[in-house]
């Protein structure tokens, strides 16, 4: 359950204040599938960053699964990100020197899970995402679709309750884009809340709920 109330986010560009988000309120129930759409500069990425606890609102409150996360300290927010939120990025953000296996294992490793346990979980994830024979490949040896599948496997390996995807198909060709969208939707079917930022209308139409943003405000929510 995500609950945002009167969120403001102001950036200083030179000596001019830019309202990236002004008075944004929204609620997303568990297991929802939301597409945030809008022209570039409309504040959709800013909204996603706030939901993902990568950025703090200047005012307003944010509650995630009953916790007032906007009032938490930096390190506590990191803890919440680690366990509840999975990110999928447009440019995949894989660590180039690590293999597909190690990239997927990264969150487990950082949280201190033992090697043997990691082995089991990552191997299962590799199989589930059709990467069974790519475990030892580094990102530069993988296709775009495979890279994004590795990134999604990494985002889900900690079994988060929310997946935040920022233009997940923006850097992929049509067919791999559809493939990635289907994988994300399959995860949503399993109960994970899926929030996706996109300006691709075809992708946006697949979501059950679409939020249209213009100039830092929610223009339309259906």
């Amino acid at each position: 359950m995500i609950h945002l109330q009167h969120i403001e986010r102001i950036f200083l560009v030179g000596d001019e204040e830019v309202h990236a988000l002004s008075d944004v309120s929204m609620t997303a129930s568990d297991g929802e599938y939301i597409a945030i759409m809008g022209p570039s500069g409309s504040g959709k990425s800013s909204l996603l960053n706030i939901i993902g606890l990568l950025d703090r609102p200047d005012s307003g409150s944010y509650e995630l699964d009953g916790i007032k996360v906007s009032e938490l300290e930096e390190e506590q927010q990191a803890e919440i990100r680690r366990h509840k939120i999975g990110f999928v990025f447009q440019f995949f953000h894989l660590v180039p020197r690590l293999t597909a296996f190690d990239n997927i294992a990264l969150p487990l490793m950082l949280s201190g899970m033992k090697q043997e346990e990691r082995q089991v979980r990552v191997t299962a994830a590799l199989t589930a995402f059709g990467l069974g024979n790519r475990a030892g490949h580094r990102p530069d040896q993988l296709s775009g679709g495979q890279r994004q599948r590795v990134a999604i496997a990494r985002a889900t390996i900690m079994q988060p309750s929310v997946i935040l995807a920022d233009e997940p198909t923006g850097n992929l060709d049509r067919s791999s884009g559809v493939e990635v969208a289907e994988i994300l939707e399959e995860l949503n079917h399993q109960g994970i809340t899926l929030i996706m930022v996109t300006h691709d209308p075809d992708l946006g139409r697949r979501a059950r709920r679409q939020i249209l943003m213009v100039d830092g405000r929610i223009e339309n929510d259906k």
């Binding site: 993902g52 390190e75 990191a78 950082l110």
Partner: peptide, 9 residues
């Protein structure tokens, strides 16, 4: 990325 994965400062 590490920060997004929940690594603190």
């Amino acid at each position: 990325l590490l920060r997004a994965l929940g690594v603190g400062r």
